[in-house]
Design a protein around this nucleic acid. Structure first.
Lengths: 236, 236
DNA sequence: CCAAAAGTGTTGTGTTTACACCCATGC
DNA sequence: GCATGGGTGTAAACACAACACTTTTGG
């Protein structure tokens, strides 16, 4: 079949901002490149879209290469396509953010990369426009998490209410009232209380909960208003 | 400088779903292609990203070519990148939606295209994955408009409250209570009442309003909850 | 017994919804 | 004078925000 012969073909990449939560801090997985260009500089993990894959398949592949995990929760943020964003050659990159359960993460990547979890409060300078990608991902995640129960993807199967609250507080950088938070969370019907308690983080112990999978699927796209005054906390 | 020599370059396009409101119906601007491939088939307006422009610049250029207008409100929807989406040659397309004031639109395009406003209730079958693009654009627009005052971009400088209400009703395909709608709208402080009345649509006449530009900018990204029970009306 | 974190209830305030009548005008 | 669409008010239900004390238990 005839091609669009006069048009320019462009490199297309994907870049993944991978979030994890260790129970205390929200972190992203960054790599230090072991090769040129930009050797020893920090960046997010990315890769080029291959001929036989869509951008989202490419992002899933990159995530698997870096973390060993599949079926990861992933959202596209936006396309980064400024003409000069990559000094080597013009490249258009599709941004994604992904949530992984941090305990399931095992280093997978060759020693061409050094991968490390970095607190979102302490992101170093990154190559190209990767700092902007991280900011866009954070803003989109804050926006979406204010309305939809996506943050459970960062937690293990069993979690306690104080753990979730800490996670929300990290995401929004502000403290929440535990009475109001717990009431709102439980009123969604998303959680099933378990008998078991987590005794690691307190003497009294906090009950574990798990997700009600049916209710989770049903409510995923609904507006839940998790965050009081979201307008005060969001930039976009 | 060295290039990423082993990687595949891919065609990158933009496709724009252009919305307009004629006072009665929400419409999108479609074109009937006057050339092969897919001659005489309907599609949305698009074009390839050139070497000297970003995808958003390409989208703005395409919008200008089709409508003659610049500085149009535009949002990126998502990337459409399935390997087989374009049968001629692999092409990755960045989707956008745009709002134009329908009265400002003047046909600009060469007679290679026949452009027409089509009611969103009556979208014909489109080429490639353009029907999916339209659906994605509609869902994103509904989502965003439920929380942010973007729909004013579809209206002329002067508009009446019954006009805005009709627009919201078209966007969500459901009727709204005029007392509650008007109260909520006016309580945002976004509108300035003018002395003049629109006497075309009723005998009594409805007062014109204009946007309070300062308040509009300030409130653009805030959550305004224009739509009661948005969860009942949205798919994503 | 005490420190540390978990868990739980109430009240006032503001927002949302549902609902019905009068007004102005052109014909 | 009447049909058409514009404009407004109120009350009940609900959701939200602010706030403090009791419980459990490991040390």
């Amino acid at each position: 079949m005839r091609k669009y012969s006069k048009q320019t073909r462009i490199l297309v990449a994907v870049d993944c901002i991978i979030f994890g939560f260790d129970g205390e801090k929200l972190k992203i997985l960054l790599i230090k490149r072991g090769f040129e260009p930009e050797k020893d500089k920090w960046s997010v993990m990315g890769g080029f879209v291959q001929t036989d894959e869509s951008p989202s398949q490419a992002a899933a592949r990159v995530l698997k290469e870096l973390t060993g995990l599949e079926d990861i929760y992933m959202e596209q943020t936006e396309v980064f396509g400024n003409v000069d964003r990559d000094p080597i050659e013009r490249t258009i990159s599709v941004g994604y953010y992904a949530f992984i359960e941090i305990n399931k993460y095992k280093t997978q990547i060759t020693d061409l990369y050094h991968a490390e979890w970095i607190d979102i409060e302490a992101i170093p300078q990154l190559i190209f426009d990767h700092n902007e990608m991280v900011n866009v991902a954070l803003n989109k995640l804050r926006y979406k998490a204010a309305l939809h129960p996506i943050l459970f993807e960062l937690l293990p199967n069993k979690f306690t209410i104080p753990q979730i609250q800490t996670l929300y507080e990290q995401v929004y950088g502000s403290e929440l009232d535990k009475r109001n938070f717990s009431r709102k969370l439980l009123s969604t019907g998303l959680l099933i209380k378990l008998q078991e308690k987590d005794k690691l983080n307190s003497k009294k112990g906090a009950f574990y909960y798990k997700l009600n999978e049916d209710s989770y699927k049903d409510n995923f796209e609904k507006f839940l208003n998790f965050i009081p005054n979201p307008q005060a906390l969001l930039q976009s």
